[in-house]
Design a protein around this nucleic acid. Structure first.
Length: 508
RNA sequence: GCCCCGUUGGUGCAGCGGCCUAGCACGCCAGCCUUUCAAGCUGGAGAUCACGGGUUCGAAUCCCGUACGGGGUACCA
């Protein structure tokens, strides 16, 4: 494969079908097209292929465009931005007669014909073929029908489609940029439909006409299109057009090695957004599925990926979508975020109904939240409401739900713990400077004084202050909580232990 | 059934005929750091490069076959 920069201006497209929520696999295809275009200084075009009127899903187109925007894949031509080949929506192009005209051209030059076979007959034929263990496909019944016969049938109300006339012999070869020359036997292909009875083109016709008219130079699409490509080659030949270069990308597989789908959990890109993944993470991660720069770098900015991109780096073997690695990468991106930015992201999540407990008043104090961010910053993998609430709720609650048994550390009893906490409360009250470092110094001294290991005293304090065994660094937590609340909590824990020593403890 | 594509540790990738006693990353395990958890650092386990034949002085890399996985086989894209 040669350097693409010598091939002239690159024009690529992403041509989704609005039949559902945009899937990570689709967006990866879009992303690779975009990266390729940007690398080559070419154009990235978005075209909506809404020719299957029955599978259309309301709102799907909007969500596709939304997903592209979220990932930062801006398009030079397409819906919303227009362009020299507008419209970029196939139903609108169909209304202009673009495809009917193309089909007519193919009929006129002998590469296509009209067919009046009913779906019922087609079904029958297929069943017979299956029974005889023969390849299924159209049997060519209408192929040589006379014009008169056809006219009579149509006059009689029979619906018709246009089929491409597949050559009965010879072979079709095309060169896949990634896989090299691929050879197919056209006799196995059968005459396929290019214009449906509702007047809409099939994908085969529509995308070829549009790719040609829009000057597409490279088609980067998913591997599942390989078997259709010989059809496309024959059509280019029928039209007398120069085909673009084909690059069939490997597909994405779920952990069980079957094609990634809903069964594998969330696969819609926007769900990843909603679950707290950053666009930068998704961009980076998606780019690495089936592509590598050839070096060992994995965490890369958008710009680095664009710069390093090359078709040579594409891998033809299928990739498995590994959510564990995605989460790790999101943690990396989260850690790179400035505290203020992260705070801005966290506030709405915490304020959401399923964020912090309802008892906590909204709106939250922005500065206070910002002061809390460093405490959780490197502990986050995703921005998840439930998890955030778990990690931070005790910073907002007036009273925490303490289990006295958890306050008592290994090698201590309730009495020892209670008196140690009393001393700690005193120390907190009298601390000259309520900052993490001096506090730590002071409390280390207290450990010595009380003959306790830091692990013991600090552990007891941690639970007293947070009601959790696992929490951010102790003294930072104290500072964030403030002197008053810290003292109160430590005192309360001490009281719970000494006063309630003989009482049944409350089960939370 | 038929056609096509693919196959490097659990996972994502590197490798493009000798530099491979197969490299990096995630995950896992251990140690360090340490007040817990993370993060970070260091080390470790884990792959006879799906298998079998060739070609070659030499193959993970080229060819053929087999197995397995995947895709396609529609008036879906």
């Amino acid at each position: 494969m040669s350097d693409t920069s010598t091939l002239g201006p690159v024009r690529v497209r992403y041509a989704p079908s609005p039949t559902g929520d945009p899937h990570v696999g689709n967006l990866r295809t879009a992303l690779l097209n975009w990266v390729f275009a940007r690398h080559a200084g070419g154009q990235f075009i978005v075209r909506i292929e809404d020719t299957d009127r029955e599978r259309m899903v309301d709102g799907a187109e909007d969500r596709i465009l939304e997903a592209l925007k979220w990932l930062g894949l801006d398009w030079d031509e397409g819906p919303g931005v227009g362009g020299p080949y507008a419209p970029y929506v196939q139903s609108e192009r169909k209304a202009l007669g673009v495809y009917a005209e193309a089909a007519r051209q193919l009929i006129d030059n002998g590469h296509a014909y009209e067919c009046t076979c009913t779906p019922e007959r087609l079904d029958q034929v297929r069943q017979q073929q299956r029974a005889k263990k023969k390849p299924t496909g159209y049997d060519g019944y209408c192929r040589n029908k006379s014009a008169d016969e056809l006219a009579a049938e149509k006059a009689g109300g029979l619906a018709s489609v246009v089929r491409f006339k597949v050559p009965l012999e010879g072979e079709v070869v095309f060169n896949d940029v990634l896989r090299g020359p691929l050879t197919f036997d056209p006799s196995l292909l059968q005459d396929f439909v290019i214009l449906k009875s509702d007047g809409y083109p099939t994908y085969h016709l529509a995308h070829i006409v549009d790719d040609h008219e829009m000057g597409i130079t490279h088609v980067l699409r998913s591997e599942e299109w390989i078997s259709s490509t010989p059809r496309h080659m024959m059509m280019y030949e029928g039209f007398g057009w120069e085909p673009p270069a084909f690059v069939h990308l490997s597909i994405l597989l779920g952990p069980d090695r079957s094609k990634l789908s809903k069964r594998h959990g969330d696969t819609a890109l926007l769900e990843f957004r909603d679950k707290g993944f950053l666009p930068g993470t998704m961009f980076n991660f998606l780019s690495l599925l089936g592509w590598s720069a050839g070096d060992d770098e994995e965490v890369m900015t958008r710009e680095q990926i664009v710069e390093k991109f090359s078709l040579d780096g594409l891998n033809s073997a299928p990739s498995i979508f590994d959510i564990t690695k995605l989460e790790w990468m999101n943690g990396v991106y989260l850690r790179q975020l400035p505290v203020e930015t992260l705070a801005e992201m966290l506030i709405p999540e915490l304020e959401a109904r399923d964020g912090l407990p309802e008892s906590i008043a909204r709106p939250l104090d922005r500065d206070y939240v910002t002061s809390l961010v460093p405490l959780v910053h490197e502990r986050l993998k995703v921005v998840d409401r439930a998890e955030l609430s778990e990690m931070l709720s005790y910073f907002f609650q007036d009273e925490i739900d303490l289990d006295p048994a958890e306050v008592v550390q290994k090698g201590m009893d309730e009495a020892v713990t209670a008196s140690a906490l009393e001393s700690a409360a005193l120390a907190l009250e009298s601390a000259e400077s309520f900052e993490a470092e001096p506090l730590e110094e002071q409390f280390r001294a207290l450990c010595v004084e009380l003959d306790l290991k830091p692990r013991q005293l600090f552990g007891a304090l941690r639970v007293s202050l947070t009601a959790r065994k696992v929490a951010p660094p102790l003294f930072d937590t104290m500072v964030a909580l403030g002197r008053g609340r810290s003292v109160d909590r430590v005192r309360r824990a001490a009281a719970l232990l000494s006063g309630a020593g003989t009482r049944e403890r409350t089960v939370s």
